[in-house]
């Protein structure tokens, strides 16, 4: 067994059947991926491309029609290996009558974590996901974003080696998205493996070491972000304080050197970047309620 591999799938295939076993939906078709230990791996693709199905197969929630998956060296129906996995489901639904502390305590007990240890971990995680102000509120009063946050805390309660996150940033505000990404990066720094799936490309772009793109259940392409995005013959320059005449001169110079100017425009921030700037300016004045 290769010790560097956290997850390995071999021809992993899933066909959902209708109730009478007739109509089939091929949700995942012969997926072969290797995810290395210590990396952040992004599974991308449009809605319905089979991302969630892949994660459910890895966790043994559904069973493969064909092929197999090894998670931390074990097959998916090994219960013990789940001690080392944290999972954030796509829709975080919990017992609606429990509050944040109680639900984390419940899951902590399922991991047989001792009472004292549970308490410290819960305190830390609740603060980490920014829910300190709502710990004692029942979950049915939580907003979608708050549920996502408690979902992330729940996935980390057992201090897992492998974290599997299904759409971790869906429903989160930009700050939440940023904080979540920070948590994910810090997990990687602790040497943990993260598998996340998302249809929001920008989310994944910043933090993933490697990505795989699925469409209609088929693996389209996989590799590091740089491999996938860099085109060797295009150069980008960011220049400040250049007059219009100077720009025309540069364009002429480029043509003389047999280059092609593809576009000339003022640099613009991403919306996310703008939002974060505003938030950073306000942060001293008031505590934003989420």
């Amino acid at each position: 067994m290769d010790n560097d591999i956290a997850i390995k799938t071999e021809n992993l295939t899933k066909a959902y059947r209708s109730f009478w076993g007739r109509k089939k939906i091929l949700a995942l078709d012969k997926l072969n991926i290797d995810i290395k230990r210590g990396e952040i791996f992004g599974l991308l693709g449009p809605n319905g491309s089979g991302k969630t199905t892949t994660l459910k197969l890895l966790l043994g929630l559904v069973f493969p029609t064909e092929g197999r998956a090894l998670v931390l060296g074990k097959t998916t129906n090994d219960v013990a290996v789940k001690n080392r996995i944290g999972f954030l489901p796509e829709e975080s639904c919990f017992y609606r009558f429990l509050n944040a502390d109680e639900i984390l305590d419940f899951y902590g007990q399922l991991f047989r974590i001792s009472g004292k240890e549970r308490k410290t971990r819960i305190d830390r995680l609740v603060e980490q996901v920014g829910l300190g102000f709502a710990r004692k509120r029942p979950l049915r009063q939580y907003s979608k974003g708050m549920l996502r946050r408690i979902g992330i805390a729940q996935a980390l309660i057992n201090d897992p080696d492998l974290i599997i996150l299904d759409e971790p940033t869906s429903g989160l505000d930009p700050i939440g998205t940023r904080e979540t990404k920070d948590i994910i990066v810090s997990l990687k720094e602790q040497g943990k493996t993260v598998l996340l799936c998302s249809h929001l490309l920008s989310d994944v772009q910043d933090i993933c070491d490697r990505v795989a793109i699925l469409d209609k259940g088929k693996l389209q392409i996989s590799g590091t972000i740089d491999e996938l995005l860099s085109s060797k013959d295009v150069v980008e320059m960011l220049i400040r304080n250049l007059s219009d005449e100077a720009i025309t001169e540069v364009e002429t110079f480029v043509r003389e050197k047999h280059g092609e100017v593809i576009s000339v425009k003022n640099s613009s921030d991403t919306l996310e970047g703008l939002f974060l700037k505003i938030y950073a300016a306000n942060i001293g004045n008031s505590k934003t309620d989420i």
Binding site: L59, G60, L61, V79, A80, V81, K82, N83, I85, F87, P89, E91, S92, C93, F94, Y95, R96, Y107, L110, F111, Q154, N158
Partner: peptide
């Protein structure tokens, strides 16, 4: 239906 059991089965519980 609430997916609670879905989450519970991802924990090390038979």
């Amino acid at each position: 239906a609430n997916r609670v059991l879905c989450t519970v089965t991802t924990k090390p519980v038979q």
